[in-house]
Design a protein around this nucleic acid. Structure first.
Lengths: 342, 342
DNA sequence: CAAATTCTGGAAATCGTTTCCCAGGCTTCA
DNA sequence: TGAAGCCTGGGAAACGATTTCCAGAATTTG
């Protein structure tokens, strides 16, 4: 007998005190209209008096729905995610759902444990917001017919929803903005090239440069960390002729570039224009405020959540593959300026 | 019949295929040593073949433990929290626990729903890392005998663990560091004064100034947001004689101060020394890197988690009130310098 | 070799809900 | 007035595990 046995308030206790059956209590609590208002009131009175809260686990067990959505991210500390998690949670609360947050921290073992835990808790759906997740793991989820939402890189299979990102749009705007400021030597700092999303950004850059007849050879490989941005700047400044603008695969990299520029005494945007990607919240507060390509995290989270809700609502109605699109757009701040003529 | 019924793999199915009873399957899965190794192997074989994962809800229902810890924060997007959540999750994974993350977003309704959801999911314990939570809500949790861990502001009651922060230490170091740099007009930007933690920081500042015979009247009220830091700087610069150093109640405020200084053309640390509080990860990447008082988020999360683990382990052994202490320390970066003589 | 003891694994109760099925009590209509 | 048809609410069977007993087998002991 554990200590919490004494607060044993089950539906039966309520039933006894309200002098009705457990079935009626259940119906009353779930606001089933077939129950007499008088009775319902009696039940609610007892419920309130005793401070009774239904046991979600028992509920889930019999109903088959856990009212739990999994959310897999790569790292919670990655500034890209908190806004997403927050928005996701807000929506979850509104819809009486809970969120099971898991991070992979780029570790295969953790990925596996993430998936296992999702299945064990019988989540009603999973949003996978991390890039790079092994297919064999996904197979487990697919096998269970767990609704899946991917951002950008999901397999083209029935029952999985994909949110595709229009990288091209924002990056084209960024490149053209720089070109308009008379920049011709524009460098690009990539992300880790084993990530499809990083590749897509790089390709969008190449494409955009080609469109306006500019060479896209000034490329430095980074890994999306602030530190790699710092290193990237060193390499960029060593190039000859020296680039006058840098476009980065994400904001952290751009912030690293700016940070290193500060250390090296290069003025931004005077000596070098910098553009980021993602528009994490912090981008508006850097010094100078960072011009960047916005990929709305709120919007992304909203789409992901709604996609999941649709999946559980449909209930095997039309499990065909579905796609959503998320656009990207340049937001101008103060890290870009006219190219310095040399 | 829902669509997932077809993947109906329960313990019985395993039992049938392994030609043993469900009891044996359960024991084998839980590595109960009383089961014959031969049999256990047979069971595991079937389990692996079928890709069986035990249903946590059923488990929780009968065992009385949900293996779920609640984590209530004020806002996930507050940069103070991601590191905590990440550390907490890491520990959870190691210990086969799940984390139920909830944010109050400073909204009484959300606080209530947070608590309700924790109870409904029957969490084994809750860490409350938000400052300012109504006592009436906590009463619900206490009534259920849910182990509770507070940071800094918990009620002095049996069964609740408190993590107390030694604000004084770090703030004294900060003040003395500034004094050593010949600053005598040191301003302080407070947090929202309805938060006990903000009051404690302010008082620690006053105390530290008094210790070395400096006046502590240069006080601006803020609310821990970056924006309030920006506004605070305007007020500070309007003071006469003008302060030469600012100590802030948290890092976001300090970053706001620096951001505004940049806009107004005041050099940091040349014209003004700035010190923050918290040491959020970003503090090392600001321009200039922010000198701040470290309150280790990792350590905080670790203590909170271990406190919860202890509570569930003890199992009503010694439910007396327990206290942990977390120290704070100044970390020197580059936002402070010798006072400019005027 | 019989009796006592220890092991091992099975049957069944249990956890706290939802929900199916059904029995009465009413209403309605012929 | 009697038969037919709703409503309403109760009894009991799930849901998928764990765990307590308990019986029979295996082992040890006198």
């Amino acid at each position: 007998m554990s200590a919490r046995t004494n607060s044993s308030m089950d539906i039966r206790e309520i039933a006894r005190r309200a002098k009705v059956s457990t079935a009626t209590v259940s119906r009353a609590i779930n606001r089933n209209p077939t129950v007499d208002p008088q009775l319902a009131k009696r039940v609610w009175k007892v419920v309130d008096e005793l401070g009774y809260y239904p046991n979600t686990q028992a509920r889930a067990l019999v109903s088959g729905r856990s009212r739990l959505f999994g959310l897999i991210v790569s790292e919670i500390t990655n500034p890209f995610f908190p806004e997403i998690v927050q928005t996701f949670e807000n929506l979850a609360v509104e819809n009486n759902y809970e969120i099971l947050l898991t991070s992979t921290v780029h570790d295969p073992k953790r990925m596996e444990s993430s998936v296992r835990r999702m299945i064990e808790r019988r989540v009603d759906g999973v949003a996978i917001l991390t890039f790079g997740m092994e297919d064999s793991l996904l197979a487990h989820l697919r096998f269970r017919k767990v609704p899946l939402v991917f951002v950008d890189v999901g397999p083209d299979a029935p029952g999985v929803t994909n949110i595709r990102i229009n990288y091209q749009n924002g990056i084209r705007q960024a490149v053209q903005h720089l070109a308009a400021l008379r920049h011709t030597r524009i460098a690009f700092v990539t992300g880790p090239l084993h990530l499809r999303s990083a590749l897509a950004r790089r390709d969008a850059f190449k494409e955009s440069m080609k469109e306006i007849g500019l060479p896209s050879g000034l490329m430095v490989v980074g890994d999306h960390t602030l530190e790699s941005g710092m290193q990237a700047l060193e390499q960029i400044l060593a190039l000859s002729p020296r680039p006058t603008a840098v476009l980065c695969s994400n904001d952290m990299t751009a912030i690293g570039v700016m940070r290193q520029a500060y250390d090296l005494g290069a003025k931004i945007p005077g000596d070098l224009s910098v553009i980021g990607f993602d528009d994490i919240r912090f981008a508006q507060f850097t010094i100078p405020p960072l011009t960047t390509v916005q990929m709305s995290q709120k919007e992304l989270a909203r789409i992901a959540f709604e996609a999941l809700m649709n999946c559980v609502a449909e209930e095997s109605a039309s499990p065909g593959k579905i796609e959503y699109w998320l656009d990207t757009n340049l937001v101008l701040r103060r890290s870009t300026a006219l190219a310095k003529l040399t």
